[in-house]
Design a protein around this nucleic acid. Structure first.
Lengths: 378, 378
DNA sequence: TTGAAAGCGCTAACAA
DNA sequence: TTGTTAGCGCTTTCAA
């Protein structure tokens, strides 16, 4: 296709030389101006910018990429799901990439797609990217590991760096610490132990939360009830709640995400158990509605934004200064949001009714209650 | 930077000529094979593919784009928010683009960013895209309209095509029809009128829902209560619920999204009003938890996937066959999900208590109750 | 069915 | 501080 035909108006998109001619300089000087290189006189710069403006010049990125070998683009592999976590992380990555001067290419993997991540990475490599972000990957077994030669730096978000190949870097939301904080909150309220409604264990994110829960119980020498595994959905939380309701010793549950927590709470209510009077529940994510469900959900908030920025800093460093020592990642903040779904356990053998007005335990924990929320009724 | 240095192993990425040499053909034949052009002998094709495999050849997209003037990439402008609607639409667009053989570049606009959409479009144009999708834009007034010469076809999702410039095409989720169905559902249950908790009116999506609500009331000659405007958040729904609770004649509310509906229901409960015994509430979106909140939320489901595919079909046609008449868009399906937050209005002046066990009205509407959900208690 | 030659619009390396 | 000269790895055009 001849130059500029895509414009559809028969004319031709202006090129660097067109600007140069109008400005009375060489094409290279135009290039210098648009790359903000030094050694351009103020006068030349002014004339170039003026000419470019007059012509409506826009640099051709394909030509730039071909000549320079760099695309100034980062590719993202993410899961094709509207789940709050992955969606929020993608937004953080976009912003961080733009702040760092990179554009974004996005490829979704479909869960259950065999070799999905590897295929997605391959397609990004073909499209041309300077670096790749693998966001919240799922462990697909041996094939999942990116043993393929990646050619470009890889950042793994929410999974071990090893997942991204030998030279990958990684950053995480600190899910284990968050899960530990959530569990400790329940223990501090006086619960003897805490049950765990886990996410699907093929997800690294789910495993980290399980580990944090384990660690919190182990640190206090508490017994670890058997784990129920859900699939992140409220429906699976509901099913789990049905099972748990029949466990006689149930007083506290840590759910691996808020959706499951909501389903769980509903199942408990349907079984005649009150939250938090009979059973306390902590979620994970702080989804937008969590402050307004019944009861308002105590949960843990993931630092998506800081993790995305931190991760991209590492990735960009790996791209631009491959030989520099990768700066160690900082531990992300732990933010527990205490609302009304947690309370001290009911007194032993006391009929539930008598504890209906039990005082909420507040303020004993890591973060103040969120502002602007409704009064915690019930 | 010399060829292949990005590999870091000192070697050079193989090019088409390298493959050609090994296969004993010309570089042009390699190009033909990888573009699936005709007029390549089976024998030549086999040898080329073999050589490419042996060398680990991957075509250079920048070179292809430079030579052909086409990038095989579509740019998406979307809102940097994890709101369920926009996030779901983005996923649909990614899948549809890939199905059509296009890669995706993504740029987020930040709400309140002046000229955000225009700036995002400009940046996509610089990056090089064959077409642009503007997803769920916000009306930013005169500056918002993409009067700029876009050079490439534009698809506007969820707003009038005019928003995208003179030659833009558009597709929508049929929000007006969905809102009308939601409102009609309430009227059919016997409510005299329906209040509306609207989304921010700078969003086209919010306006469409308002219009649908208006149309449903107007069609039956019902009075239109004054509209309350929220900001999509559950907090704003809660605030609206507080106000509405004091309106004496309140029996039904249509909320412009599920988050607000959840906040609204909570405020009503805090004010001593029961849902659905005293007040019925319909939401919009069918977010993942909506079947498990208390009470399970009657809502409306947006056909993100079919709209994304339909829209991309139009966009790709505009890219590849600019002269063809754009096929008219089909009306997307209307899917009302009836759960337990809607019921007939309470009998006049009857104390609420007496209606506590009112039978749910089911099956009178447009879609069967969703499968796999919990029994509708309360 | 295949190949040779001429760019695509830019950057890199070097010279002035 | 500026310009010149070669490519970058493909597609296009035309000839064989």
């Amino acid at each position: 296709m001849p130059r500029g035909e895509a414009r559809g108006d028969g004319s031709t998109a202006p090129r660097g030389v067109d600007v140069a001619r109008l400005a009375g300089v060489s094409q290279k000087t135009v290039s210098r101006v648009f790359n903000a290189e030094q050694y351009v006189s103020a006068e030349a710069r002014r004339r170039v910018l003026e000419a470019a403006e007059a012509l409506g010049y826009r640099m051709n990125n394909a030509a730039r990429a071909l000549a320079s070998g760099r695309t100034r683009t980062i590719g993202v592999v993410t899961l094709g799901t509207a789940l709050y976590g992955p969606a929020s992380l993608l937004i953080g990555v976009e912003r961080a990439a733009r702040d760092a001067g990179y554009a974004l290419r996005v490829v979704n993997t479909l869960e259950g797609d065999p070799g999905g991540v590897a295929g997605a990475v391959e397609s990004l490599l073909e499209q041309g990217v300077d670096g790749i972000v693998v966001s919240e990957p799922i462990d697909e077994g041996a094939e999942g590991a990116l043993s393929l030669s990646t050619d470009v730096p890889v950042l793994v978000l929410g999974a071990p760096a090893a997942f991204g190949g030998p030279r990958a870097v990684s950053a995480g939301v600190g899910a284990e610490a968050l899960a530990r904080a959530a569990t400790e909150h329940l223990l501090e309220l006086g619960h003897v132990t805490v049950h765990h409604l886990a996410g699907p264990q093929r997800w690294f994110a789910a495993r980290d939360r399980l580990e944090g829960w384990r660690a919190a119980l182990a640190a206090r020498g508490r017994q670890q009830p058997s784990v129920i595994e859900g699939d992140w959905s409220a429906a699976s939380g509901y099913a789990a709640g049905r099972d748990l309701a029949s466990a006689g010793d149930l007083t506290a549950v840590f759910a691996a995400n808020d959706d499951m927590a909501v389903g769980l709470i509903r199942a408990l209510a349907d079984a005649g158990l009150r939250v938090p009077a009979d059973v306390s529940v902590v979620g994970f994510d702080d989804i937008p509605v969590s402050a307004y469900v019944t009861p308002p959900l105590t949960t843990v908030r993931q630092p998506f934004d800081s993790v995305a920025h931190e991760g991209l800093r590492l990735l960009v460093q790996a791209i631009e200064k491959p030989d520099a020592e990768p700066a160690p990642a900082n531990d992300p903040p732990v933010e527990l949001v205490v609302r009304a779904s947690t309370a001290p356990p009911p007194a032993r053998k006391t009929p539930a009714r008598e504890r209906h007005t039990a005082t909420r335990a507040r303020g004993a924990t890591h973060a103040p209650p969120t502002e602007g929320e409704p009064p915690a009724t019930h």
